[in-house]
């Protein structure tokens, strides 16, 4: 009878000692990299690449709000007629453009899409700049009638040669205001004033406006169903 050979007697270690370190290091590095990736993804979702903040679009006619509002001083409501009564501020009909441009600049080449639209009864297709998700209910008229000015959300439109989105339009941005309504409330005659700036004692004035205009409290205004109906 021969004794069975001693198992693993001369067997070399499979893993080098450094493997201990590598395994521990890769454990922590994995957690770190996962966190980094998550930060990157969330950061990208909030970047102008996705929110389209400050990104101008090429429009069929390179309409300048700077010229019409800033230089000519036309009121917002001349074109955006339904802002006081409806959820949408409204994009003007071609006829509104033609009310001036049938006599002003009525033969320049870059306004041909307007004239063509009026002639052929085909709509101009403007590229949408401010886009809210379909699951968000937003109403222009309530904001305007409670004293939130155009420039609070849309920025200095009178200084924009081409329209761009001045704010992120992220939910966080909406809530920033819904939780601090007093900071955005203006005198009602300053709603369409592009140059309005909050006063030094805005918080105090804003609280007064809030009481006068029966604006709901923060918990109601930041409730889910206020915007997600």
């Amino acid at each position: 009878m021969e004794t069975p050979p001693q198992r693993n007697a001369n067997m070399a270690q499979i893993f080098h000692r450094s493997t201990n370190f590598i395994s521990r290091f890769s454990l922590f590095a994995g957690i770190f990299l996962a966190g980094l990736a998550l930060t990157g993804v969330l950061g990208l979702a909030r970047s102008p690449y996705f929110t389209r903040q400050n990104v101008t679009r090429s429009q069929p006619v390179q309409f300048s709000h700077k010229h019409h509002v800033g230089d000519d001083g036309i009121d917002c409501r001349y074109c955006h007629t339904s802002v006081e009564t409806s959820a949408t501020a409204g994009i003007p009909q071609t006829k509104t453009c033609m009310s001036c441009h049938s006599v002003l600049f009525n033969n320049v080449g870059y306004l041909e899409p307007i004239r063509e639209s009026y002639r052929t009864d085909a709509s101009i297709e403007w590229v949408k700049v401010h886009r809210l998700a379909d699951y968000v209910y937003f109403n222009h008229s309530i904001h305007v009638s409670k004293g939130v000015g155009c420039s609070t959300c849309h920025g200095r439109v009178d200084q924009m040669p081409l329209m761009f989105q001045a704010n992120t339009l992220l939910m966080q941005w909406c809530l920033d205001c819904h939780r601090n309504t007093e900071m955005a409330l203006r005198p009602l005659d300053k709603v369409y004033d592009m140059a309005w700036r909050p006063a030094a004692n805005q918080a105090e004035i804003g609280r007064q406006y809030k009481a006068e205009r029966n604006i709901r409290n923060t918990s109601e205004l930041s409730s889910c169903s206020t915007c997600h109906r």
Partner: peptide
């Protein structure tokens, strides 16, 4: 895209 009216019907309020 936003496709507005060419000649908006009278009395219509958008939205």
């Amino acid at each position: 895209y936003i496709v507005p009216y060419v000649k908006q019907p009278e009395g219509l309020v958008l939205g």
